[in-house]
Design a protein around this nucleic acid. Structure first.
Lengths: 248, 248
DNA sequence: AGCTGTGAACGCATTCACAGCC
DNA sequence: GGCTGTGAATGCGTTCACAGCT
């Protein structure tokens, strides 16, 4: 049983206990945090293309945002550009990676090795982006012993040992919705404090545990809503048989 | 290129309860639109559990939001509740489904039948949530002829015919990043106007085309950022490598 | 001159708190 | 009494526009 990871006691009020030696925490807005990985990806692409310097305008285009927003975002990290010139690609890339915390790899466990779990386990982009899959877990005995992406699938009951052994802070849930909350609870008990949830259900977690969700159906439904509006906004006149044809 | 704008699948005409004098366009805020599918899911779960009526507080809990936000969101759709009582689960569920546009199924194509494409194709939640996969496309000849989730994988060059035949408005890109923009362009040319992009790259699309992205690495990096901050008062994962601290 | 960094203005989203109705 | 629906207040995020540096 691992009780190794402890968070700072007390809530997170706006009054921050300021230890001497610890520099003031910059307080980066959540919306900016969500874009930093996009900037990181764009900078990596620029670096791969041999670009050594870029303006906020160029980087913004590569990241799909406007330059004012980009500069504002970067201003929360510090002054890493040069006025009249722009940004050094490699330098800025490192600064953002450091801010996000992906200058070293984070160990990650994936729970639920079905179709999606397989796909996630085989996703090669992990390693280069700051993560390392250290264990694949599944409750079904027939999936255990199987080898996926070079890792043997473990029984879910090994979760405590594996999380403790590899100091895992981040878990990915790729189980069916019905199992997700129980899996989540076990992960949290084992010491995981950040969860990426692919199961289409709301997870309840204790204070201090972060959950992010990825839900394919929700994304499609948002698209469908807008699509429906486009259809209303520009209806084509005189359509008698707009039935969708069935095949397959 | 096909310049025809298509209507919602099934072709049933819009039928809002339409009081005289009410503007035809309700204008639902984007943040609300993004939550409607979550409410829909929660209502379906409640209905499956046999609940026929619920308060805003109950539904909000099931959806993982607070009740004030829920009521505000629902107020954009209309007055579907009863003061002093709450909401009829089935009635509200239908109203939200209608607003989103998933009372009939939307035909969808998936491009890129690698690990992720397989997982998406096999995801069973599609049909019940308003979508129907009508085609799987891949450029690699060795993947074609393969049968996935009951559909034969087609060559990407069939995209125009398939999109036209099935009146496809929504496409899913599950290709490597390098191929994504070209695939996107072809989809748009074929007539697709909404794209769900799983490739880790920014897509450029013409006006009128919607893109939503799902990026696993970005989600993990956002978690890593917060995890790193928690770690200020606790051991760092990856056991005591150099602390990542601000050095002014 | 050129481009970054940033206060200020603006607009959108959330929360509050209570009026309105059952 | 209880719960919804909603203006008002608050907070957050984006955009503007320009000061400040190279």
């Amino acid at each position: 049983m691992s009780a190794t990871r402890r968070r700072a006691p007390g809530g997170r009020d706006e009054s921050r206990p300021h230890e001497p030696g610890t520099p003031a925490t910059p307080v980066i807005p959540e919306a900016t945090v969500a874009r930093l990985p996009v900037y990181l990806r764009a900078l990596t692409a620029l670096a791969d293309a041999g670009t050594t310097t870029c303006s906020s305008e160029e980087l913004a285009t590569a990241a799909g945002v406007n330059s004012a927003k980009l500069r504002k975002d970067l201003s929360y990290l510090g002054s890493y550009g040069t006025r009249g010139v722009g940004y050094d690609v490699e330098y800025l890339r490192y600064q953002i990676a450091r801010e996000i915390g992906v200058t070293q790899d984070w160990p990650v466990v994936i729970v639920g090795i079905g179709n999606l779990g397989h796909a996630l386990a085989n996703f090669s982009g992990f390693r280069s982006r700051g993560f390392r899959i250290v264990a694949l877990l599944d409750a079904a005995p027939e999936r255990q012993q199987e080898e996926v992406a070079g890792l043997r699938v473990r029984g879910f009951d090994e979760v405590d040992a594996l999380v403790a052994e590899h100091q895992v802070a981040i878990g990915v849930i790729a189980t069916p919705a019905a199992a997700a909350q129980a899996v989540c609870d076990r992960l949290v008990t084992a010491g995981v404090t950040s969860i990426l949830n692919f199961a289409p259900t709301v997870l309840a977690v204790p204070e201090g545990v972060d959950v992010r969700k990825v839900d394919l159906s929700i994304e499609l439904q948002i698209l469908a809503y807008h699509e429906q509006r486009k259809a209303h906004a520009a209806p084509i006149p005189g359509e008698g048989l707009d039935r969708v044809e069935e095949s397959a």
